[in-house]
Computed example of a mutant assay.
Amino acid sequence: MKSLIKNTRGMTLIEILAVTVITSIIAVLVFSIIHLSVTQQVKQTRETASLNDVTYALKVVTKDIRRSKNADIIDKKLELEFPDGSVVTYSLEGTQLIKEVGEKIELITDGIGCTEFTANGVISIKLSNTSDCSEGQSTEIHFRKGEGGN
Rank of each mutant, 00 (worst) to 15 (best):
L51W: 08
N52Q: 06
D53T: 01
D53H: 12
D53G: 14
V54Q: 10
V54L: 14
Y56H: 11
Y56S: 10
Y56E: 13
A57C: 08
V60C: 11
V61E: 07
K63G: 12
D64R: 07
I65H: 02
I65C: 07
I65L: 13
R66I: 01
R66M: 04
R66A: 03
S68T: 00
K69C: 00
K69D: 05
N70I: 00
A71F: 05
A71S: 03
D72S: 07
I73H: 04
I73G: 05
K77N: 15
L78Y: 08
L78M: 04
E79Q: 10
E79D: 00
L80C: 02
L80A: 05
E81Y: 00
F82P: 00
P83F: 09
D84Y: 09
G85E: 12
S86E: 12
Y90N: 11
Y90L: 06
G94Y: 03
G94E: 06
T95K: 11
Q96M: 11
Q96S: 11
L97M: 11
L97V: 12
L97K: 10
I98N: 13
K99Q: 15
K99T: 06
K99W: 03
K99C: 11
E100P: 01
E100S: 12
V101C: 00
E103A: 15
I105G: 00
I105F: 04
L107N: 10
I108E: 03
T109G: 03
D110Y: 06
G111Y: 06
G111K: 04
I112C: 08
I112T: 14
G113E: 13
G113F: 10
T115R: 05
E116P: 04
T118L: 13
A119T: 06
G121V: 05
G121I: 04
G121A: 04
G121E: 00
V122C: 03
V122Y: 00
I125D: 11
I125L: 15
K126G: 02
L127C: 15
L127S: 14
L127F: 15
L127I: 14
S128Y: 10
T130H: 13
S131I: 07
D132A: 10
G136P: 08
G136L: 07
G136C: 09
Q137L: 15
T139R: 04
T139I: 13
I141C: 07
I141M: 01
H142F: 09
F143S: 04
